[in-house]
Every structure is written in C-alpha cells, then in structure tokens.
Design a protein around this nucleic acid. Structure first.
Lengths: 260, 260
DNA sequence: CGTGAGGTTGAAACCACTCAAGAAGGGTGG
DNA sequence: CCACCCTTCTTGAGTGGTTTCAACCTCACG
C-alpha cells in the first residue's frame, strides 16, 4: 500500500510499465479489455523517451508506422498549407490517440508537435490490427476512439461554421475543461499550454480577437485569465455562452450560482 | 455476355446482388478483399429499398444498429442544434460510409437525409466487426474508410477556418468534382443535388453569399451555373481559386486552356 | 394560371480582421 | 543582479468581407 501510494504521485511521468498499470487505462486503448488479453496489447505498445517542448512526433508526408497515445503532456496537430501557413487541427490530451488520419493512405497528413514535455506510447499500426483481430474488446475500443475523434472534429466543424468568435472561444474553453475532467483533473483550473496564436488558428480567428475576448470574458466574470492560466469562475455562464447544455457535475462541480 | 452488358446500364440502380458484383466494389468496403472471403462480407450486408428524396436514414439520438454505404444518390448528414438550427456536416456520395460517428458511443449524432432518390446498403455494425476480425483485408479497408472520413472532415475544417467565402465555394466544387471522378463519373458536369441553403450551411456562409459567388465565378468564366447544374469551364482556375494544387488529369481531363 | 419554394440581387450594418504601437514576461549575458 | 532583448500578449483605430434585411424573380407544380 505504501509504495503504491508513492507511485501514484509520479503516475503520469514515469516510464511505461504496462497498459494494465497505466492511469489512463480506462480512457485509452486498453479500456474494457479483459485482464487475460491485456498482455497481448502490452507486447506491441512501445515506450518512448519524452518529447521536449517543440519537438515533433511526425510530419505531414511521413509514412504511417505508429499510432501514438499521449500519456502526459499535450500534442498539437496541424496541417501545413502550401505557403507556409498552417491550420491547427487539434490538441491531443493524455489518453487520446494521434495519427489516425494517416490510416487513410498510409501517410501522415499533419505535423504533430509537443507543446510541452510530452510522453507518448507508440503503437505499430500493423501489429495493432493483428492484435485487434484476436481481441474483440480491443477492436471495439479502437473503433470507439477513432469514432470519437470523428465526433470531436465534427464538433469543431460546428464551432467554425455557425458560431461567433465569442461562442467559439467559450466552446473551446468548455470542451478543454470537459476533457480534463474526463481524465480526472480539475476542469476549472486550465493551463493553456498552447499560445494565443495556436488558439486563434484552431478557432479560425485572429490572434487579437482571442486576446480581446479573453479580456472581455474576464471583465464579465465568466473566467479569470492570468497569462496562460485560466480559471473558470462561472461554469454555468461559460456553458451558456458556448451554447452547450449545462450538465450537472460537468464542468460545474460547484452549485449553480446564477439559477436557471 | 449480352445480359451482362444490359445489366451494366442499370448498374447503380438495381437492387444489390452482392458486393462482388457491385460497381462500387473498388471504393467501398469490399475493396481489396480476396474473392474467397467476399462471401463472408456478403452475408452481413443488407439491401434496402431506396429512400425517397427527403426521407431520413437515421436521426441524432438513434441507437447505432447499422452503418450505411451509399450505393446511388446522395445523403446529407447534419447535426441538429438546440434551437432548431443545424450544421451540415457532410454529403455522402456513392461508395462512402455514413454513420461512423455513432460508433463512439453507440448513438447517432447526426440526422442523415436523402437529397434525392438514394439506395444504401445497411451493414449491422456488430456483425461487421465480427467479420473484420476474421478477414484482415476487410479490417484494413474499414479502417481506411473511417480514416478517410476523418481526413475529409479535417479538409472541411481547414476550409472553414482559414479561407474566404470565395475560396470555400471553389474548394467545395473542386472536391465534389474530384469525388465524382473517383467513382468514374465526369467531374466537370456537376448536378448540385443540395440546395443553396445546404451549401451555405455546409460552408459556414449565408445563402446569399453562395448565390452571389456562384454568379461571380460564372462571370469570370471559371464555371457555368444554370440552376442546379454547374459546369466547370476552367478546372485549372477553379483549383487555383480553391488553393489546391493542380494535378494533371485531376478535375481537368481536357487540355489546360488558360496556360500556367 | 395562380401559388410557393428556391434562388437572385441590392443596400446598409456589423463583426472580425488588419495594421500598428505598446506592455509584460522570460531568458541570457555582462 | 541588472540591463537588454525577444517573444508573446494586449489594446486601439480603421477597414472590409460577409451578413442581414428586403424586394424581386422564376421555375415547378397543382
């Protein structure tokens, strides 16, 4: 018990032992796999040395070798344009897979870069398919994860298609909070590891617009911004601005303060 | 031989016999499957009566039972918002799968509606997974298709994020043309089965903007619009406006007329 | 031949962008 | 430890692309 407690503290940072012991096992590929089959997955999943901030995991044009699961830290994926410009596609938090777009034609379509010190597991895609064919629970979970990515992209699409700058930013903060809560962290205290530029690009806005709106939402008492720390002061208001249904307990652990 | 020729004429419209004989077999799920294994797929794929224009295939909230492959016609998927508004997510042409977002949590997140008389194959998802576990080529192809959907959504994302209305519309027409060519049709003669409203919604624009820009592109000699028929007059110019690399042969079968 | 949905065109308003300048960290070297 | 620089972020003013509002057109259909 005592050594176990100690280990839990450095849980996210230590090098991988096995999926079975991973703190993200309920989110990531191993979710739902019977203990007896876990070993098969463990045999194909590879540890990697952590990436430093700015280091890239793969680049557009690279041949697909592995899929990657973020274990700690954050990855940013972006599609480079023809004139040096790029579109940020997504941010990958612990437990989320990266590289799935490459399956379409065995080629990565994005650059993936670590926004902070980031550990990943590398999963050789070919071997993953082999194991998935033998372990139905893994197959199911893999399909769920890739479909979840699809849903996330579609949410992102809706944000870019029909919403104002204000709504987009609120939605971004809201969904970031929700994802953090999904991995058991406090969703009201955000560390924005990405720059204003990244956020703006991701949301299809100008950097200045993001800055202005962060200030405005702070003035309105919805959030509290201090450099790259964002505290969600009024989760209910944030959800309302984001146009999201307010779920009791979801990104709003405290009592509703403003009624309705 | 003679009856075969006759059948080819009504190829897309007749009721399904088997994936083996389907004219879309090189695009859809059966692509790459050895003939010996094809029968296993055929046993789970179900024919459906064609949908009439406006008829819906599934709705947001429905439990996932089947995935669907368009065989002829066009499906529109859209995510309904809280206030009656909706965001069009995509248009599904023959050979493309619909319903993949539902795998994430066994629930459809979109409404899928036929924009014209549309035939689909229904594939019970559970049984598809079973067969995929036994037939590696099917597993691979399924993964490729779902990943392709991801790539398509990401392209759409880029269009909505960083491009002007003009570029978005050009990109829309360009990619529509390319997809038609992928299924062997003439990509320069488009029938827009979707309304201006659908296009505008899909592109995150106002209906009026789409209308104005279609007129403008016609005046400039890039396309020729007549009601719901669009002829791509200058594929190279269209690709350039769309910000897409011009691929010889891709959406430009004829000689380049305007140089460069 | 009327009716209505779908589409076009015009004018005015507005949201977000661009350009520009300044402030606020966070390093780095003296 | 401080001065300096450079990156990142904030704030302001003016511009412009797109939207909104509104009228009109035009087919398709009963």
């Amino acid at each position: 018990m005592a050594p176990d407690q100690h280990e839990r503290v450095v849980d996210l940072r230590r090098l991988r032992r096995s999926c079975r012991e991973c703190s993200l096992r309920t989110l990531c590929l191993p979710a739902g796999i019977p203990p007896a089959d876990m070993e098969q997955l463990d045999r194909v999943v590879q540890s990697r040395l952590p990436l430093d901030r700015g280091q890239s995991l793969f680049r557009a044009g690279d041949r697909l070798e592995h899929l990657y699961a973020a274990r700690s830290g954050t990855l940013r994926t972006a599609q480079p344009g023809s004139e040096g410009d790029e579109q940020v596609i997504g941010f990958h938090l612990p437990g989320e897979l990266a590289g799935l777009e490459a399956i379409s034609d065995d080629t990565h379509h994005c650059d993936a870069v670590a926004l902070e010190r980031t550990s990943v597991c590398a999963v050789p895609f070919g071997r993953l398919q082999e194991v998935a064919a033998r372990v139905p629970a893994l197959q199911s979970q893999f399909h769920r994860l890739i479909s979840r990515e699809l849903v996330q992209d579609q949410q992102h699409l809706i944000a870019l298609g029909r919403r104002t700058a204000r709504e987009r930013l609120a939605l971004f903060l809201h969904s970031l909070a929700q994802r953090l809560e999904a991995s058991g962290l406090d969703g009201c205290e955000l560390r924005l590891v990405m720059s204003r530029d990244d956020i703006a690009n991701y949301l299809g806005l100008a950097l200045e617009t993001v800055s202005r709106l962060l200030t405005k939402l702070t003035e309105e008492g919805v959030i509290d911004v201090e450099r790259r720390r964002v505290r969600i002061v009024d989760p209910v208001a944030l959800a309302r601005v984001a146009g999201q249904p307010v779920i009791a307990g979801g990104t709003g652990e405290r009592d509703r303060e403003h009624g309705s």
